[in-house]
Design a protein around this nucleic acid. Structure first.
Lengths: 129, 129, 129, 129
DNA sequence: TTTT
DNA sequence: TTTT
């Protein structure tokens, strides 16, 4: 019915870019997202969350993101079921990104932010009321 | 850079449906969203938030939503500037809905939920990794 | 850094309520969240997402939610690692709910919505600017 | 019922820090949030969104944020009504921040991210199922 | 200009 | 009353 997730974190590795048989680009990477509080042992914990992104944005991610870079993801949570090597059914969570934003400055002498448009292009007519 | 808002509330009136000169449908309505806590006077407060939705979803809202109905909106916050009747510049906030969900059962003998697809149709190829 | 997820779906079973050794209530349930689009075979898919909620809200969920009821969850995504029965390390995703809203009318003759306050209580002083 | 907004943008000015009569800190600032697409004139538009944040986080914002800095805000949208200088009732939108994240590196030779914990501290007991 |  |  409604499924919306927003994450900010750092890439654990460079993105992996693949193409489907029909030539559509798809990129995958993992985001390390620190929890805001410390646990009972006084240590900060981190969730490692798999991200999948399609099309032009996948190629942009492969070009502009790399290990350690800060990124924001806006998408939805998918629970994918797959057959394990043990013949068992397993589930894996991944975030299907609708939008990815690049939050790390391009280089150390630059405070700018590499940005990426969404692929969805709303028409911005005047509203008649 | 990133602008995402999710609301659940009740319509204060029936939606208004208009068409732009180029024939594009646009609907507007106000959502009454109760705050989760009481204020110092012990009363529950409410935010009245204007929603704008375009295209096929606008027509669906006009058909399926009405005063008092419960709805969820997923979209972005816009601050629109306009010239007041006093010649002054004013600002108004409104939510541009990307998705609207109808949460009120169709009728009293039904617990189902009227649902509306998004207009954006992701392709769901197999992920090659 | 930032981890926010909002879901609307139906419970696949009644919530399970437990207590930790130190007497803290915790409830678990699974939400069936339909995807907004159909897949290539023309069928609607569903994500089954595990929810965990603590404290007073856990007890409210156990009292007011049951199989098939519609609920909204606002929380964060956790990836928990555990030792499988096969001695292997596995990961499971779950949503730690900060807020749960009950969206199903109490009974068929009622269009009202059972609501639950958040546990977090902001003070609502006047803003001095 | 549910009111959640997540924004990433840049401060248009330094934050303003005030204290209520009862000594509670409150900070206000405006976030410039670029829209992801260009309008019909081919220009990128921006929403200027007022943020309010209370308590310890208000003081952290005053200390670590300044004009031009990148920040993420997670909170709720409030529509506040006030008496205009013309005796008229007006409405203003503002975001009550629950969490603010500082996304600009501390200085040019540092890619780190200044971070701020939430004030809300979940207990992280083991989940008994 | 406000809904249950 | 606007940021990069």
């Amino acid at each position: 019915m409604l499924n919306r997730i927003i994450l900010i974190g750092r890439l654990t590795k460079d993105p992996e870019l693949r193409y489907t048989p029909n030539g559509k680009a798809v990129a995958g990477f993992t985001l390390a997202v620190d929890r805001p509080y410390k646990n009972q042992q006084g240590e900060r914990e981190t969730d490692f969350i798999n991200i999948v992104v399609w099309g032009k944005q996948a190629e942009n991610c492969a070009n502009y993101l790399s290990k350690g870079k800060l990124a924001a993801v806006d998408g939805s949570l998918r629970i994918r079921s797959f057959e394990g090597q043990d013949g068992q059914r397993h589930w894996v969570a991944e975030v299907l990104a609708e939008t990815v934003r690049f939050l790390s400055p391009k280089d150390k002498n630059d405070t700018g932010v590499e940005e990426m448009g969404t692929l969805i292009d709303f028409t911005d007519d005047d509203i008649p009321f």
